[in-house]
Design a protein around this nucleic acid. Structure first.
Length: 483
DNA sequence: TCTACTTCCAACAGAGCCCG
DNA sequence: CGGGCTCTGTTGGAAGTAGA
């Protein structure tokens, strides 16, 4: 037979009341269905108030809160300075010496006095019935901060079933269950439990929202069981993100005139058309530093440094690149150029070709293609790729000016291998072989006036923490605040 | 002390790709 | 075909260093 605290308590106040015994020995479902009205919870069936004695050394605010809850639910609280009553509940904090002493000095007598963790009050209120001794056996004030209950908000994303099961575990371990979404006050100690499994971004969003409140945390609902299992309430702080900026102690590598000249040459050859995009991108510069054999002069700076060098001095570099290109014209799409291009500057001839139009310069058709929707462009590009792959050589020749994409790069190479005679507009200067390192400073760049800022240097390199939407109504809140 | 420069990081948008 | 994911380019910010 499962002996319950409530059964014994009622027995001591009502004598041999068989109906009480039956009620409390009932199965879980029967107990659940016997929820009592707010004012009747801590009252015997004979309308006699159950008596509580609260451990004197508990936090004053916690004591006031417990007193209020007990009285609100029909119980009475004995003078905490007096000796615990011979009948009733002694509420202790089992984690304190005083609690242990109370338990030893005034043990359960098996008849009319019961020593329980103070969370019994919260758990019973949450359950709507007096919890059994078994249910309270593992109860500990876990969800407590500075001796006071933590408000635990159960986000609606958890679902009703999970909210119900979490509520009981939270309350018998000292937490105050709340079911409003994110209505915390600035001062309260709070934890917001969410279900990120079904709302992947929610936790991050809420974490950011509560980031500036050091006493409020957003946690996965598993946090409840983890805390109960570890018997302590701790929070997982996000890993600190690394700050930007140069590493402490690292030296500055100042850019030289020669390095700027190399950069002008490199960009001019890789991306002669600025409109094609990519000069400010990362990959252009990653490729630069990843090829020390081709660009040994680039190894003194990181790719991001090169990118930033161009970015911060874009206007100046673009002018110098233009001048370089006047002396060293670059054929668009030539080998060695950057393999990415903005859609807007894709050669029109390609579009007309892949859309099934004439295979030669049909600017009107190309113009109409400009108006075509983005999806058509995408599928056109895919078909273009397939044309190339399926080609027997004839098709390849029809593609006169492929886009500088990774798909097209292979076609360019094939085209050159086959010779230029197959295409009417391939009659162009022989493609510049950009591969390999060129002289560091050529005549073009030498005639430029070094910019003034270049440095030609040698290279050496509490408002109310106990307010509770479920347990305490607004009136209670006012009472608590007024105290 | 101010400013320029170097280095690194993050966010965002657009485009391509993959898969149901 | 559409949604989701990934890649790329772009932009801006921050910290540290060094020279004026």
């Amino acid at each position: 037979m499962v002996r319950t605290v409530s059964k014994r308590a009622r027995a001591q106040s009502t004598g041999s009341d068989s109906s009480i015994v039956e009620l409390n020995a009932a199965s879980g479902s029967r107990v659940a269905s016997s929820k009592r009205a707010t004012g009747e919870l801590f009252v015997t069936d004979n309308s006699v108030a159950l008596e509580f004695h609260i451990q004197k050394t508990l936090d004053e605010r916690l004591k006031r809160f417990l007193e209020h809850q007990i009285e609100r639910h029909g119980g009475t609280v004995a003078n905490s300075t007096a000796i615990p009553p011979s009948n009733g509940y002694i509420l202790i904090d089992p984690d304190t010496e005083k609690g242990e002493r109370l338990k030893t000095r005034f043990p359960d007598n098996g008849k009319n006095r019961y020593v329980v963790c103070w969370t019994f009050v919260l758990g019973s209120i949450q359950a709507g019935r007096l919890l059994t001794q078994d249910e309270m056996s593992s109860a500990k004030p876990i969800f407590v901060r500075n001796g006071r209950p933590i408000n635990i908000y159960l986000h609606s994303t958890l679902g009703k079933a999970r909210i119900k099961s979490l509520s009981s575990r939270i309350s018998i371990n000292g937490g105050l269950v709340k079911t409003q979404d994110g209505i915390t006050t600035k001062e309260e100690d709070a934890v917001i439990l969410v279900n990120p499994d079904s709302h992947s971004k929610l936790r991050n969003e809420l974490t950011i929202l509560y980031d500036h409140r050091p006493n409020q945390y957003v946690e996965h609902y598993n946090w409840v069981d983890e805390s109960i299992h570890s018997k302590k309430c701790t929070h997982t702080l996000p890993l600190p993100k690394r700050l930007g900026g140069r590493k402490m102690g690292s030296t500055t590598a100042v850019y030289t005139v020669e390095e700027d000249d190399h950069l002008v040459e490199y960009i001019a050859k890789r991306i002669p058309q600025k409109a094609a995009g990519g000069r400010s991108g990362q990959n252009l510069y990653k490729e630069l530093v990843d090829r020390p054999e081709d660009y040994p002069w680039a190894c003194r700076h990181s790719w991001s440094s090169w990118a930033n060098r161009y970015k911060r001095n874009m206007e100046k570099f673009d002018k110098r690149i233009e001048k370089y290109l006047e002396r060293h014209p670059q054929e668009p799409g030539a080998k060695g150029q950057y393999n990415h291009v903005r859609e807007e500057v894709l050669p029109s001839r390609i579009r007309s070709r892949v859309e099934g139009g004439s295979d030669v310069e049909d600017d009107d058709a190309a113009a109409s293609e400009e108006a075509a929707g983005q999806k058509r462009k995408r599928s056109a590009k895919r078909r273009h790729a397939s044309v190339i792959s399926d080609s027997d050589g004839q098709e390849m020749a029809l593609v006169t000016d492929p886009p500088r994409t990774q798909h097209a790069s292979s076609s360019r190479q094939n085209k050159r291998q086959r010779g230029s005679s197959t295409s009417p507009d391939i009659d162009l200067p022989a493609p510049t072989n950009n591969k390999g390192k060129q002289k560091a400073v050529d005549s073009d760049t030498e005639e430029e006036e070094p910019e003034g800022d270049y440095r030609d240097r040698p290279r050496d390199d509490e408002e109310n923490p106990f307010q509770d939407g479920d347990l305490v109504n607004n009136e209670d809140y006012q009472i608590e605040s007024a105290r």
